[in-house]
Design a protein around this nucleic acid. Structure first.
Lengths: 212, 212
DNA sequence: CAGATAATTTACCGTGCGGTACAGAATAGG
DNA sequence: CCTATTCTGTACCGCACGGTAAATTATCTG
C-alpha cells in the first residue's frame, strides 16, 4: 500500500515520478490517442478489445492495468477528446461579437468532424446516440460534457446581450441550443460522408438565423 | 420448387394467398413493428437476437424463416420506418409555401423523435452513425433513404423558386441540406433526452434562417 | 547481489452472440 | 388417410467477446 507510482500524464504532461517496479513500455498518451482513433471511427460498442490492443500496440492485461477496463478507457478517451475540442471552443468563445463566436464554433465543428486526418463525425455524438444497454452509463457522461459546452456558449451569449451585441429579445438558451443542434446535425452528416465544403455551406445557411 | 406461398404483407396489406403447409402463427407486420421498436431504441448493433425474439414473441428459427437474418430483418424494418416517415413528409411537402413546408417538416420531426409513445431519436440517424464493421452495409441503405428525402425537399424548393415563393438567389440544395442537418441534430438531442418544447424552440430558431 | 514492486506475456475462462439441424406439428391436396 | 409442404420448438454449433490467473521480466532500493 505504499505505491506512489502515480502518473498524471493524462491531464498534464508531467511524467516524472518515483516509480518502483518495471517501467511501462508504452506512452500512455500515445496509447490513448490510438484508442481515441478507434473509438471515434467505430463507436463504443462497435469497438472490440482486439481492435483496441491492436491499434494501441499493447496486450490486453497491459490495457487493463493502465486503464481499468473498456469503459474506463473510454472515459479517459472522452476526456482527451473533450480537451482537444475545448481548444478551439475556447478560441471561438473569445471572439469579440456573438456572431463571430458562433461562426467560429460552427466552422471549427466542420473542420473537426470532416477533417480527413481523423475519423469522420463526432465522438460525442456517436456515443450519445449509441443505444445498447452497456453504454447507458457512457451516455450520461457524454451528455454532461455536451451540456457543459452548451452552457459555456449560453453564458457567452448572455454576456453579449448585456454588451448590446445581441438584441434584448434574444434568448441565449434557445440560441445556444440551436447552435449545438446544428453542430450535432453536421456531425451526423460528416459521418455519412458529407464534404467540408458541403458542411460549410450548411454552416453559412445556419448563420442566416442569427439575430442582427 | 413449385412453392407459391409468397406473402406480400410487408409492402401491401394483401395476405390472401394460396399457401401450402403449416400457416404462420404470427402477424408479419406486428412482428416488424415490435422489431422496429427494439431497433429504434437500441440501435442495430445494440440489439441482440434475444431482444428481438422476446419482443416479437417468436422463436429464432421463425424469425430466420420469415426475414432471412438480422440484417434482412433490419432492412425490412427500415422500409417500414421510412414508410411511416413518408406519411408526414408527403403532407409537409404538400404545403403551399416553402416556409410552411419546412416548418411542418421540422415540427413533424420533433413529434416523431420526441414522441413519448415511441423510442426517442431517429432510427435512421442512429443507424447512420453506428460505426461497427458489421453495419457498414446498413449505412449505405440508410444513406440512400436520407438522400431520397433530401432530394424530395430540394425539388420542392426548386418548384418554390419558379413560383416566386423563394428569392431567385436562394439555393435549394443548400437549404435542403440545412433543413436536414437541423433535423438530424434534433434527433440527436431527442435521443439525449430533450423535450418536445425544447426542440420546438430549436425549430423556431432554425426557421429564422429561412429566406423571406 | 537480494528483495520488493510493477508491467509484460501467454494462455485461458465463462458468457452471449448470430445462426442452424432436426424432429414434431399443422395445414392443403389427392 | 396419406403425402407433400411449411412453420414451430428445442437444442445445439462455432466463435468472438470482455475480462483474468499465473508466471516471467525489468527496474528501483537497500
Amino acid at each position: 500500500m505504499k505505491a506512489v507510482g502515480k502518473r498524471i500524464s493524462a491531464t498534464g504532461k508531467v511524467a516524472e515520478c518515483a516509480h518502483v517496479g518495471r517501467p511501462r513500455c508504452f506512452d500512455t498518451d500515445e496509447a490513448l490517442d490510438a484508442a481515441l482513433a478507434v473509438f471515434w471511427k467505430k463507436g463504443y460498442e462497435g469497438t472490440s478489445l482486439a481492435d483496441l490492443t491492436k491499434a494501441m500496440g499493447i496486450e490486453r492485461p497491459s490495457l487493463y492495468a493502465a486503464f481499468g477496463n473498456k469503459e474506463g478507457l473510454f472515459r479517459k478517451v472522452l476526456n482527451r477528446y473533450a480537451c482537444k475540442s475545448e481548444e478551439f471552443v475556447a478560441e471561438a468563445l473569445g471572439q469579440r461579437t456573438s456572431r463571430a463566436v458562433v461562426q467560429r464554433l460552427l466552422m471549427g465543428n466542420v473542420d473537426m468532424t470532416a477533417d480527413p486526418r481523423n475519423p469522420a463525425g463526432c465522438l460525442l455524438v456517436q456515443a450519445a446516440v449509441a443505444g445498447g444497454d452497456e453504454s447507458e452509463a457512457i451516455r450520461g457522461e457524454v451528455n454532461s460534457l455536451r451540456r457543459a459546452g452548451e452552457l459555456a456558449l449560453r453564458k457567452r451569449l448572455q454576456r453579449a446581450k448585456t454588451e448590446g451585441d445581441l438584441p434584448s429579445d434574444a434568448e441565449p438558451a434557445d440560441l445556444a441550443g440551436y447552435v449545438f443542434t446544428v453542430a450535432h446535425g453536421m456531425a451526423v452528416r460528416a459521418k455519412s460522408g458529407a464534404t467540408r465544403t458541403e458542411l460549410k455551406r450548411v454552416a453559412e445557411t445556419a448563420m442566416r438565423a442569427w439575430p442582427t
